[in-house]
Simulated assay, not measured.
Amino acid sequence: MGDRLVGYVPGAYDMFHIGHLNILRKAREQCDYLIAGVVTDEVAEAAKGKRPAVPYEERLEVVASIRFVDEAVMDWSSDKYLMWEQLRFDVLFKGDDWKGTPKGDRLEAGLGAVGVRVVYFPYTAHTSSTSLRQLIGA
């Protein structure tokens, strides 16, 4: 990708909401080219214990249509190092609900070994796909 700073934002992006838009907007402000990784239904289910309410193909299409996203790709692994091997991004953006946790520490150590920075953004606590699911009984 040359001298461009490439950013990567993985997520389920289930029931797309303002928190998703905020992290994509903030990430795009800090890089030249933004790739959004949309996790498959299987990866999301393994991480959260339930399948997303919106199927993978639809979530990918929604994220790909957001103007802050230069490219939307399938995120097929919970191991973001494997995604880095495929995409070669320079910085990974996550919600700060990961910061200081064992999974966040593993993420930083694994990616830091190949020179990738991990940048955390404030988690939009008042709106999440989980809270929306609870609200609608899904």
Rank of each mutant, 00 (worst) to 15 (best):
A12P: 11
A53R: 14
A109T: 13
V63H: 02
S128K: 03
V63I: 00
Q134N: 12
V119L: 13
G100S: 13
L92A: 05
F16L: 15
D96K: 02
I35Q: 01
R88A: 07
G7F: 02
A109K: 14
V6K: 05
L107E: 04
G2D: 13
A27R: 05
D41W: 06
S77T: 05
E29A: 00
E85W: 04
V63K: 04
T40E: 01
P102L: 02
T124I: 01
S131F: 08
V73G: 07
E61H: 10
G95P: 05
D41N: 07
A12R: 11
S78C: 12
D75W: 05
V73E: 07
I136L: 13
A46W: 10
R59Y: 03
Y123F: 07
D79T: 04
E108P: 11
S128Q: 02
V91R: 10
N22P: 04
W98V: 07
D41M: 08
K80V: 00
P52Y: 04
V91C: 12
E45K: 06
E29C: 02
K50E: 10
I35T: 00
A64I: 09
T127H: 08
E108Y: 09
K99S: 10
S65G: 07
L21M: 03
E61G: 10
W76T: 01
R88P: 09
M15S: 09
G137R: 07
A36C: 00
M83S: 15
S128G: 00
L92K: 06
E58T: 12
E85C: 10
Y81C: 08
G112H: 06
T101V: 06
W98T: 07
G2R: 13
K80H: 01
K26F: 01
T130W: 06
K80N: 01
G95D: 05
V69R: 03
V119D: 11
P10S: 03
